[in-house]
Design a protein around this nucleic acid. Sequence first.
DNA 1: TAGATTGTTAATCGATTAACAATC
DNA 2: TAGATTGTTAATCGATTAACAATC
Lengths: 231, 231
Amino acid sequence: MTDIDNDSREVDSRLKSESLTEEIPDKIIRRLPHYYVQLKYMMKKDIEYVSSEQLAKIMGFSSSLIRRDLSHFGQFGKKSYGYDVHCLYENLQQILGFGYEKTMIIVGAGFLGRALANNKSYSERGYILKGIFDKDPAIIGLEFNDIKVMDIELAPDFISEHEVDVAALAVPAESAQETADMLVNAGIKGIWDFTETPVEVPGNIILIEQNMNDGLCKISCKLVQKRQSPS
Amino acid sequence: MTDIDNDSREVDSRLKSESLTEEIPDKIIRRLPHYYVQLKYMMKKDIEYVSSEQLAKIMGFSSSLIRRDLSHFGQFGKKSYGYDVHCLYENLQQILGFGYEKTMIIVGAGFLGRALANNKSYSERGYILKGIFDKDPAIIGLEFNDIKVMDIELAPDFISEHEVDVAALAVPAESAQETADMLVNAGIKGIWDFTETPVEVPGNIILIEQNMNDGLCKISCKLVQKRQSPS
DNA sequence: TAGATTGTTAATCGATTAACAATC
DNA sequence: TAGATTGTTAATCGATTAACAATC
């Protein structure tokens, strides 16, 4: 196993050294992948430079916001030219951590877990799916995306042995907390939580709540508002 | 079919009349379902009153924020007692629109679409799942949650006939925009978008982007920051 | 050079928190 | 009455936008 922390990847000198360690505001982090995707498109089209104004038009943010977001990490633009697409892409990749190998498992192999197993974008973002776990004997042993579902009892040892970074939590709400506790005790560093109940984890664990029903609630709320307003 | 707009449900007099039509800030909408869930727990435990301070402790918001959020819709509290759990629950249900019947379809019956088909929380939030669509002949005709997958060619007629409100979009990224266009043309009112590419819809269509990979990016970013900071 | 566009500072906007008078 | 807790106003905080000097 390579020690990826010592990976001697060349870091752009324009990248502020603090910017990889200093806490980045969540609001900015959320926009970064979108910049990243746009820049990838542009690279494919062999566009060399892009101005904040052009990006603004495409992405629906203000050019001011884009300049401010990017300046948070360093000075990547050339005055009167705009931003070097390739350079910015590489640096965003660095900031987003896609260049670092991260290991991942899926816990819960219902339809949602299976959907996650078939997600194509892990490798592109530096994730390696190492295992899938479930407690249902009828599901253990099945294969999804060439990975055999293992007994969840084996998860703790698997996590510490493989130094698993992230677990996608796709178990029923009832066992969400208990499973999260198990993951944390086994040394997981981040939990990508798809369960309906918000789980509690220690402060040093990265927790992303991906509760899908919040979206459903939001639509309902907006739909009803619309029905009742005369517009 | 009942005309649910004329449903003569009793609306609490404490509920500000504007609050159902006036635009609610997104930030508040996002917190409402969480209040709702907590209040449901409390009703089960036969708790009659709860103070903003108690709610704050449970939910991790400040009591100030909770009072402010709730006061946006009316005056539901009793000074020195706190909030009437049942009354607040009913009103939140009203505001969130769970009491109104909303029809829904799922477009795309891959693993993700199937996971959505088996979601248990639709009815609780007033949604009725009317159909599932796919274009793959090998999938058309299969049943998930007792609903047969139909040919996507039939979707436009189905949507207008059944006056479908919301479509969960779970097709591959390549056909996301084209499918969204079809849905909009057929008269859909809201799209719950699970695809990787952001889709464009007219301004009068409610669009909720449920891009799951954003979560993956966020974890990656935070994970790498943590690795590099000496903490 | 003239025009374009950055990076940054100041101004604005919006959301959260603190404080407190009103009152149950 | 004394204590508790709301609803709301003022203060603070943070994020976005506008503006512009610097400069390619």
